[in-house]
Design a protein around this nucleic acid. Structure first.
Lengths: 104, 104
DNA sequence: ATAATATGTGAAAATAATTTCACATATGGT
DNA sequence: ACCATATGTGAAATTATTTTCACATATTAT
């Protein structure tokens, strides 16, 4: 079976990529992301859920807000010998072991 | 705008990934891919078309057959300083400049 | 020229993903 | 306790992708 096409599927979406681009600058709450992206709040919520399932982002409660930030997988530089697929493979092996959080 | 979500979209498909995995071994004709994958021939054809549009594969006529092989982008090792997205970016910038072949 | 083999392609049908919206939950302030 | 704010979530409606199939094209051999 193919273990990493789910990661690609999660990345195959303009909104989700734009979220990642925004979070590169700094961690943000859902409402702020929504505002910056001019996108429906619940749309952003759904997008973040999928990003989280693949361990591209993580979240932390701060008061009423949920602050989302990129995981090490996305923030860290890639040190992979191999091609584009090996990069995804590495991500899955390194960051998606917890089946509960990422059923890749 | 997002320039590389199209690449992710193309990779977000089990059949297309399996094709790439097979082509890692050696170049193959459509009918052989179809046989190995136990997938409809025209399904494989459609899949290859998308892979080609994103410059993941290329093809060469040999008699009646069309032999498909992976492009350098997929065969070569990644030497990218950056994260998973920089890898895709590099692919797009390096291999998808010809707008006629890849309208990313 | 005809037949056989290999592949490509458009479009309808089937499936899957995204969007939207109403409602659920959770926290903090009054 | 009640209200306001922030976010999550299920499900229907919408939209996009994949699959299937009939047919088109291309090459080779007879």
């Amino acid at each position: 079976m193919v273990p990493y096409d789910r990661c690609f599927r999660t990345l195959a979406n303009p909104l989700r990529i734009r979220i990642i681009e925004l979070l590169k600058k700094r961690p943000m709450a859902v409402s702020e992301l929504s505002k910056q992206l001019k996108a429906e709040r619940s749309k952003v919520s759904h997008a973040l859920k999928k990003l989280k399932e693949c361990n591209f982002v993580e979240s932390e409660r701060r008061g009423k807000r949920n602050i989302y930030s990129l995981t090490k997988s996305v923030l860290n530089d890639v040190k992979v010998k191999g091609n584009i697929f090996d990069v995804i493979k590495t991500h899955v092996e390194k960051y998606c072991k917890n089946k509960r959080r990422c059923k890749v």
